[in-house]
């Protein structure tokens, strides 16, 4: 990662301690990861972004090296953690924002709650709960959504087999199964095998009905007005045009489409094309 010094820091926010990495200088740009990942999913795009921006990439509540509270995995609460990190802890008033997978709904909740603070928003390979589409699980095809919502059972099956389970997603939801190496998987498993991390990850799925209700309320105040970039992977388990379609139901000004030869794990599968798209999009807001 030449050219960027990545600093690891912690922010004690009271009910949760967030681990976050930061690099670069300039206008703040915030990267929110998804499941089953951590800040580490941004490692390939972080140096390129840090040449132009002050990049901040937290581990979300319960995941990575952040602490794992018993509750608060609805995306409004997770988004408020990020807000407290940026606004209260770092004194940042306005920022660019990117969310992948569950980081996407988290970014949406953050942008909806602080509409003037989020200058531009990029949503990567995820649909927004409460966008008017009854089902973000593609009619059950994304079986892990309903499996993860089942109480206790997934914990009991995954415990001690975290690597096996996470690897399945990394190998099957990618277009190129070698995009995430065994060494990279080591890093994800290092934190997901820790006590409470699987529980916390599953809690993101278990809160989805609350997220739907919250977002429906939020949308009663109008769609998001800041520019939105929506990108999906066009292969394998990538969501293709579903991302753009979902974002158009919740935001006024949406551009985007697909990244070619890319599955679900966009920042690791196609970091070059993604970086290009992000830089062009955020440059429009400088």
């Amino acid at each position: 990662m030449s050219g960027a010094t990545i600093e690891h820091q912690f922010a004690d926010l009271g009910d949760v301690t967030l681990h976050y990495v930061s690099a670069g200088a300039g206008d703040p740009l915030v990267l929110l990861h998804g499941w089953p990942q951590t800040w580490y999913e941004w490692r390939h795009v972080l140096p390129g972004l840090a040449k132009h921006y002050r990049v901040i990439a937290p581990d979300l509540r319960g995941l990575g090296d952040s602490s794992r509270p018993a509750g608060g995995y609805d995306k409004a609460t997770v988004a408020n953690d990020v807000w407290r990190l940026l606004h209260d802890h770092l004194g940042i008033a306005r920022f660019f924002l990117v969310g992948h997978d569950w980081g996407g709904p988290t970014a949406f909740a953050l942008a909806g709650a602080h509409r003037d603070a989020v200058r531009r928003l990029a949503i990567l390979d995820v649909a927004i709960p409460g966008d008017g589409n009854a089902d973000i699980s593609q009619a059950g095809r994304r079986w892990h959504h309903a499996f993860h919502r089942t109480p206790d059972l997934p914990e009991a099956l995954i415990q001690g087999r975290e690597r096996l389970y996470l690897s399945w997603f990394f190998r099957n939801y990618t277009y190129r199964p070698d995009a995430i190496s065994e060494t990279d998987i080591d890093e994800y498993v290092r934190t997901y095998a820790q006590l409470g991390a699987i529980r916390a990850g599953l809690a993101y799925y278990r809160a989805v009905h609350e997220d739907v209700r919250h977002n429906e309320e939020l949308l009663k105040r109008g769609k998001l007005a800041m520019p939105v970039l929506a990108l999906g992977g066009n292969r394998s388990w990538g969501r293709r045009m579903e991302v753009l379609e979902s974002c158009r139901r919740v935001a006024e000004h949406v551009e985007g489409g697909v990244i070619e030869d890319c599955g679900h794990f966009m920042p690791e599968e196609q970091p070059g094309p993604l970086l290009e798209q992000l830089l062009a999009f955020f440059a429009g807001g400088r």
Partner: peptide
């Protein structure tokens, strides 16, 4: 299979 995650799993 409708509504039954174990089918897809």
């Amino acid at each position: 299979a409708s509504g039954r995650w174990h089918h897809f799993f």
